[in-house]
C-alpha cells in the first residue's frame, strides 16, 4: 500500500536521524576541528538536521 510505503520510508529517515545524531557516530565529529571557520560539530549537527528535514519534505512531496 502507498500509505505503508510512505510510513516506512519516513520511519527509516527517523531511525537514520536517531543514529546519525547519537553516540557513537556523533563522537566521530565531536572534535576540536574547524571547517570553513566554524566548529565541525556545529556544522555537522545543523547539516544533518537540515538534510533530514529535506528528505522528509521530499518523501512527502513525492507522496502528493
Amino acid at each position: 500500500m502507498r500509505h505503508r510505503l510512505i510510513s516506512s520510508r519516513l520511519a527509516a529517515v527517523g531511525v537514520l536521524g536517531f543514529l546519525l545524531l547519537n553516540y557513537p557516530l556523533l563522537s566521530l565529529v565531536d572534535l576540536p576541528l574547524m571547517v570553513l571557520g566554524i566548529p565541525l560539530l556545529w556544522i555537522y549537527l545543523y547539516l544533518v538536521w537540515g538534510a533530514l528535514i529535506a528528505v522528509l519534505a521530499l518523501i512527502l512531496r513525492k507522496a502528493e
Binding site: 510512505i6 519516513l10 520511519a11 527517523g14 536521524g17 545524531l21 560539530l41 549537527l45 538536521w49 533530514l52
Partner: peptide, 19 residues
C-alpha cells in the same frame, strides 16, 4: 551544542508522526 537535543528529538519524532 548541548541545548540542541531538545529540538533534534522532535525532528526525529516528526518522521514517526505519519503513523
Amino acid at each position: 551544542a548541548g541545548f540542541l537535543p531538545i529540538y533534534l528529538g522532535p525532528t526525529i519524532m516528526a518522521a514517526f508522526w505519519w503513523f
